[in-house]
């Protein structure tokens, strides 16, 4: 389980996260929402030890992620960043295969290869496996990176705006993969989403951040309601019910 305690992060003299405390429900999909600049990416990067907090701590099953050997954390937690640095000329399969690196440290076994094939298949990438990633479209690249995270097969998966660049059909592929990770594999998935209807459809719980503070937290149905959303984004929403789930429409 992931637990955030009194977390503060300051950069360029600005307080990005301010004394944030929250617990993430294990084995479920949690959507992280909030306006641009709220601190969502920063929170995920801190959880993934890519940034160091100025105050407070983050524990994963009781281990402080910033004080535990990074190689150990890599077997338990994987992150997809909102922005990825240029990937160079690796084939899709080679890149996805590096997701297994924390487990085999350079000596892949038959099981590793199986996991790689499964991940490629799950993200509908089998046909692209031999292509160089620098020749792919934005959406194809995004799916490759998600396959890499899936391949890493960690208990905790952090996805920062995984739907970037995806067409509606591929959104489906990726969100199905997200559901699969939590429902079938029992992983804890934290996913940053801007489309509130995806949050409504796939997340069990929702965390809303605003100005670096916890704004709301709870079951999807209670956070994705007219009053909290209108206050969170400072714009009016109608929330209807569709298939027994909230459906958010900008007013």
């Amino acid at each position: 389980m992931i637990s955030v305690q009194n977390l503060s992060y300051v950069t360029a003299g600005k307080r990005i996260l301010d004394d944030l405390s929250l617990d993430i429900a294990p084995g479920q999909v949690t959507a992280l929402i909030g306006p641009n600049g709220a601190g969502k990416s920063t929170l995920l990067a801190l959880m993934a030890r890519l940034l160091r907090p100025d105050n407070g701590r983050i524990t994963l099953d009781g281990l402080d992620v910033h004080r535990t050997a990074t190689a150990d954390i890599a077997k338990r937690l994987a992150i997809l960043r909102q922005e990825q640095a240029p990937l160079g000329r690796l084939t899709v399969r080679d890149l996805v295969a590096f997701g297994r690196f924390p487990h085999h440290r350079g000596r892949p076994t038959a099981e590793d290869h199986l996991k790689i094939d499964t991940a490629l298949d799950q993200l509908a990438l089998s046909d692209l496996a031999g292509r160089f990633v620098d020749t792919l479209s934005g959406g194809q690249k995004q799916r490759v990176l998600i396959a890499m995270v899936l391949c890493q097969n960690t208990d905790v998966v952090l996805l920062d705006e995984p739907l970037n660049n995806l067409d509606p059909a591929q959104v489906r592929v990726v969100m199905d993969a997200v559901d699969h990770m939590a429902r079938d594999l029992g992983k804890t998935v934290i996913v940053v989403l801007h489309d509130l209807n995806h949050a409504a459809r796939h997340a069990t719980r929702v965390i809303a951040l605003k100005h670096g503070r916890l704004f709301a937290e709870g079951p999807a149905g209670s956070v994705l309601a007219e009053t909290p959303l209108s206050q969170l984004y400072e714009t009016a929403f109608d929330v209807l019910t569709h298939n027994a789930r909230p459906m958010v429409v900008a007013r």
């Binding site: 890519l50 990074t70 190689a71 954390i73 994987a78 992150i79 990825q84 640095a85 690196f101």
Partner: peptide, 16 residues
């Protein structure tokens, strides 16, 4: 090769 993917990717995969 992993370091060539950038610092974030390297840390994520557990590399020093």
């Amino acid at each position: 090769t992993i370091v060539g993917l950038g610092r974030d990717a390297a840390v994520n995969l557990g590399l020093g």
